[in-house]
Computed example of a mutant assay.
Amino acid sequence: MNFDSYWAAVDEELAAIPGRPVLDLVPQRATDEATSYTVRLTSTGPYRVFGHLSIPTGDGPFPALLQTPRYGSVNHVPHPNDRSRYVVLGLMHRGQRLADEGFSAAYPGLLTMDIDDPASYIYRGIAADCLRGAEFLMGLAEVDRARVAVTGDDLAVLTAARRPGFSAVRVTELLFYRAMEARLRSSHYPLEELNDYLRAGSSAEIVDKTIAYFDPARHAPAVAGRTLLAVDDPDWCAPLTGAFPAASVYQLTHLDGTDNDFLDAWLAELSGVRPMSRYLA
């Protein structure tokens, strides 16, 4: 199956499954600035995924922000700064905490789960979870469809490529980009999972074929929104940057206040809201 057919099949599966969103108010998280909910959505499988949804107080529509899931068992509730300015959906994909009924993801191990077969690879379903979250967020009456952003790792790129309408894409981590090369440059997890898997006897050619479907450089040309890549090595990421129609690069300093303030201000300017620091001056 070629790249386009692979992802068209995911879209077709999602289209055949109603999202059936269920929202529950979370009174203990209510503030003067925003109202919070938990959300359950049906993705491919079918599988019920989870999200934290927050809607600002006041007259909308508001800019919106989709936070795609990080790699790990737990994703946190969106930060109060984001909840006060955006309709924000923080998504948990299948297997993560709060979306683990019937399947609990293993860490390490998720990255290589069923990786020998692209059709059953776990990230095919995880990508579908993100696409379903995008559909739900964009369909909310409180959302200004001209100001919808997505933030996260490669899943943010994939989601923006497959679901038109994102005005901004903020990429703060990379997992699948040049992964078969990157695994040789570091022994850190999660990329070390690929090395562990190959040492156990799997074929590098088979693994490379599967993860190629998720390489953000292959999805980048379809991303219409303004894109920011926050990376350690701009030269390493130059092919990815050049694949986007409109992308810029921020070199991470790993000074939390400096990086967070820049990333927040970049998105705030595009979304028409005030920048907010998470740190005391």
Score class of each variant (00 low, 15 high):
D82V: 09
E192M: 10
T38V: 12
T42D: 12
R278G: 06
R185C: 11
P118Q: 10
L267T: 00
D114N: 07
P18G: 02
L252A: 09
A281T: 09
V171S: 13
T172L: 04
S167W: 12
W266R: 00
N81T: 11
A141G: 01
E13G: 06
A212V: 10
A8K: 15
D100V: 15
R226D: 09
A30V: 07
D24A: 09
E173N: 13
D32W: 06
A128K: 09
L255I: 08
P216G: 07
H254Y: 13
E193W: 00
A200G: 14
P27A: 06
E33Y: 11
A212Y: 01
A179G: 07
D261A: 13
G60H: 06
H79C: 13
E135R: 13
L240C: 05
P221C: 06
D233T: 12
V223L: 12
A149E: 08
R124D: 13
Y279L: 07
V143A: 08
S54K: 03
G51C: 05
A247Q: 05
H219P: 08
A268R: 00
T57F: 05
A246T: 03
P18E: 09
F262E: 12
A99R: 09
W236I: 03
A179S: 13
R162F: 00
V87W: 09
V22G: 05
I115S: 02
P78V: 02
P275S: 15
P69W: 01
Q67P: 00
T57N: 12
R183H: 04
